[in-house]
Amino acid sequence: MEFIEIKNCSKIIGDKVILDSINLNLHKNQIYGFIGRNGSGKTMLFKAILGLLKLSEGEIIIDSHKIETGDSYPVSVGVMIENNNLWSYLTAFDNLKILASIKKSLNDHEIEETIKRVGLDPKSKKTYSKFSLGMKQRLIFAQAIMEKPELLVLDEPTNALDKEGVELFKKTIKQEKERGATILISSHSIEGFNELCDRVFEMEDGRIINSEGNL
């Protein structure tokens, strides 16, 4: 049975078609890549999966749970999407602590371990506003994985990361897959994606135009 079912999903804003009749069935515990140039619809598709976008047509079902356009989000999801703003006046630890307080599922030690996992110092007093772009990206990645979600939705996660950061990211993604997570990653480039993803979809003008992989 599919973990994510995307049925005839369309989004039209004004006279512009953002998502054009997308049909996808995604299995559990796999890594899916979505590639395409800017404006191809990757981010919008991810937002639709997260329940942040009202669909003009179609429906999305995650783990037998219909994502309602108004009031329902995926049950267990880690998100890294477009906006890389956290609270600028807080440290890495304090930022994650605020987010962790929503579900109350993590203790301080677990938060510190997550920060270490992405190569940051949990004891650092540096505030988020003083982070480099790469450090911000790492912390955003940390908040996505910290609660061990069943689904990870990562939009352009390697943006601003240096080579070492990208390697650490890939290693962590593989660990997350071993843990049992289903992972969706988008990128504007296919470089380095084939080795990481079980299947890669290519998007253009809001449509899936090609797919590669072993599934």
Partner: peptide
């Protein structure tokens, strides 16, 4: 919207 609401599950 991005990081808190997806944790809250409900708007």
């Amino acid at each position: 919207v991005t990081y808190c609401m997806t944790r809250n599950r409900r708007r």
